[in-house]
Design a protein around this nucleic acid. Structure first.
Lengths: 141, 141
DNA sequence: ATAACTCATTAGTCTTGCTAATGAAATAAG
DNA sequence: CTTATTTCATTAGCAAGACTAATGAGTTAT
């Protein structure tokens, strides 16, 4: 593997990281940490998870995730339920409030982008949309 | 402002956030938290800052930044120096080790992108590079 | 000289990352 | 069926990072 990245890669890294940092500031509840929101987003996108599954998905230890879930439960955004298929497991799912809060954040972020897309030319807009698809592919590679 | 984002915005949000999340996992020192690395990156990009300046840039309180800087100083990545123009201020700057670590991370991230760019067509590659420039603009708007 | 402001630091609290330990439930082995 | 092992969530202890409140030193204004 080469250690000599070219300018394209540098430009792309900067563009992606800067824009993402800006986007991540757009949240419907600014009291939530990034980690907390990430858990909610995962549940929103993929549905209920076991606590261990969440820990694995977020790449943290189960005790850490238990801590995070405790706070989210306290905020009324998630609830715990016993897994009917395995008495050791705990299923975590979004409450209606949690679902609503994530949805509002998604809308807020999309609106943020949408507003700024209006200042772009149709070509620039299409460039971004095309790039988005490519980025999605890269992220899962 | 409309509350009805369209599909373009959604695609862009997902592409950017997913790819950035993947990129942020590439670090030369995996013991560093995102917040710690962000401070180092700021110093790398803009040079020495006052502690208060760093706090403002990272949008945290000065005591929080003091804590973070304490850890980074302990890791040998930053050093404190009195500001010659104002006896109250503390200037934070990268040590050679800190500078080296950030540089290695930048290289690592660019290499990660570069490797994957090779699997793209020239058109796709150009799309991404063009998009990067647009994203940089959006992020600063 | 004094008052007001600026700056970094400490203390206390809560959250989140870790590892170690624990107990309950499930599975495998005898 | 009993016992041993594995799986899972939870608690405890520690360190780091977010906050606010308080403090002391340095600077500026009056």
């Amino acid at each position: 593997m080469t250690i000599d990245p070219n300018l394209d890669a540098t430009q792309i890294r900067q563009g992606v990281l800067h824009l993402s940092r800006r986007l991540r500031a757009e949240k419907a509840d600014n009291e939530l940490s990034d980690g907390q929101f990430s858990v909610l987003a995962c549940l929103y996108r993929h549905g209920a998870h076991t606590l261990g599954g969440l820990a694995e998905h977020e790449r943290v230890s189960p005790p850490s995730m238990n801590r995070t879930v405790n706070c989210l439960e306290g905020s009324g955004y998630v609830e715990r339920a016993a897994d009917p298929t395995d008495g050791r497991r705990v299923l975590i799912s979004l409450t209606p409030e949690g679902h609503d809060m994530v949805a509002r954040t998604v809308v807020q972020r999309d609106a943020w982008i949408d507003t700024r897309l209006r200042d772009l030319s149709p070509e620039e807009r299409e460039t971004l949309t095309r790039a988005a698809e490519i980025m999605r592919r890269l992220a899962t590679a």
